[in-house]
Nucleic acid binder design. Sequence first.
DNA 1: CCACCACATGTTTGCGCGAACAAGCACCCA
DNA 2: TGGGTGCTTGTTCGCGCAAACATGTGGTGG
Lengths: 352, 352
Amino acid sequence: MTAESTSGTPRQPAVRRAPARRVSMADVARLAGVSAQTVSRVSNGHPSVVGSTREQVLDAMRRLGYRPNSAARALKYGEFRTIGVILFTLSTVGNSRTLEAIVDHAAHEGYAITLIPVAVPTQDGVLGAFTRLGELAVDAVIVIMEVHLLDAATMTLPLGIPAVIVDSTGGDRYTVVDTDQADGTRQAVRHLLDLGHRTVWHVAGPEDSYAAERRAETWRATLTEAGLPVPRMWRGDWSADSGYRAGLELADEPGCTAVFAANDQMALGLLRAFHEKGKVVPRDVSVVGFDDIPDSTSFIPPLTTVHQDFTEVGRRCVERVLRQVHHRRTKAGTTLVPTRLVVRDSTAPPPA
Amino acid sequence: MTAESTSGTPRQPAVRRAPARRVSMADVARLAGVSAQTVSRVSNGHPSVVGSTREQVLDAMRRLGYRPNSAARALKYGEFRTIGVILFTLSTVGNSRTLEAIVDHAAHEGYAITLIPVAVPTQDGVLGAFTRLGELAVDAVIVIMEVHLLDAATMTLPLGIPAVIVDSTGGDRYTVVDTDQADGTRQAVRHLLDLGHRTVWHVAGPEDSYAAERRAETWRATLTEAGLPVPRMWRGDWSADSGYRAGLELADEPGCTAVFAANDQMALGLLRAFHEKGKVVPRDVSVVGFDDIPDSTSFIPPLTTVHQDFTEVGRRCVERVLRQVHHRRTKAGTTLVPTRLVVRDSTAPPPA
DNA sequence: CCACCACATGTTTGCGCGAACAAGCACCCA
DNA sequence: TGGGTGCTTGTTCGCGCAAACATGTGGTGG
């Protein structure tokens, strides 16, 4: 995502045109022949307005096309009923699915979502987003991070507003909601080992992704715990194409009978590479992915993968951040959303 | 993550209460020993504040953690610098990519994006969204529709705010930005015919999608214009799985040598079905998709498909809606974003 | 019959901000 | 020396709304 200058310098005076005079309560009041306060009462469904008056007001509202000004309302109440979501990109499946769940659940709670893109996943970028957020009309923030920027101390609640972080560490200082990366990875690797594979290769996601690092770490640990050798690790960028490139090399790797890809898209690339190299999945090589994107049932062959419950992640984010909003208290801690392995047709025992 | 945690920055307390009442300009002014107006000037980078005063004010701002109240600012200016986006789902690639482009471009123009989900794609659902939008803090609306609800007259500018519709008809009454569905489809079908296929089968998207209908229509028209028979049409729901089910049947269809799927995911399902049925793509059957999602390069085989420029669609939406905001005038009309056929390995001349 | 109550409606006020205007001041030139 | 001139800073006011309080009105019971 592109960001303009995200530095904290004072805003330059923007060119503002005369505000479009919208219909206000006073206009409605005048037409209905009542006071503005009565219009307010009707607008908010206050009971002590007699039927005939109410009708007059409603009629005037309709005729003038009145709609309440939420800025004034927010000013009065001191809250916007809006949650800001900071993210780097929507192009990964996980992010967009999580966002969708956040939006739905927030709507259910009567909150709107405002999106704040951060172009450059650097510390400045994050700061910039927070700075702009400060000026945006939000009561709380959910950060969908894919990079290790949380520990930048400058990011510590620079606004003093409730925040929840997705997909990162920092559970001791922030409220974190995340998929249980370690457990999912462990299930995937164990599944392959249980099938009889001697070890498991890994195509990791980009280094700057916490999720990718966590999966790689756990892959390594699981092998080590089982007393097995840890083969060389390939590095992708989440894209199917990067998985394909890794696959072309892995196909020539002697003894490679099982590969764990850090996401389904890279697994797709692996499948293609193995296919082109004449290796049959799962007869010659087994492949496991991570995410369980809907398409993975239609890969050739249908993919064994770790199911992530993005909906649940989004739901809990909203739940936890709203709890902070209402209780005015920040509680650090991590909520882990469980995963489960979905076994399809891309895994089998190793060739004899 | 461990690397950052060793950075020399001081750790912040884990729990910090949000101040009961937020810091206002008056508080800053008091601490800095100036008037509130001077604080306002500093906040907005007004030039006529002398250096020493500015420093005092900035210092007070920092110490109190001041951030401007956007509700008050919006109330004053009569605008929110926010665009609302109404959508039904983020789970289709097109929607999330379009949204991402909208967010980016809006940010570039200094506008934030507020998301308004519509749960049920019925007329009531749309109305509900618009009603709530009326109370939301937005200056304009972009509607990402996938269903034919525009013609519901009740939606006619219920708020009188600028609106742009993506992906629909109604160009005579609304401002519409859309991918050139017809041209893309024509290119896909012509490509298959030019390769020598006698006709082209079609797996359409759901009936309630305008894009799906438009593609189906154009497919039919292109065949008819060429004097060719129009085979039975299969109906999917955009999912790979629905493409797979259609593919299982199409594989048994005599004389079916070319299939145009209304999106890439259904094409993926087709590829799997043909594979399972022992039909080799493209030797026995050619397949063309629509969208050009990044994964389509890694299908087996890499998919020939119609490239949609979602980024451009999003960009133009923002551009057109902001033009309305600034010129205070609604201009109906349709902007079509061109498509182009990307030929990969899933198409070939029909078997002899 | 009047004091009082319940309820509908009106008036005042201030949320935080910034435009418009006013005030204070230093400096300049006739 | 006196009246600009230009610059910084302060004061007033109202954006639209709704809480709090004030007022008005009709009805009821002692």
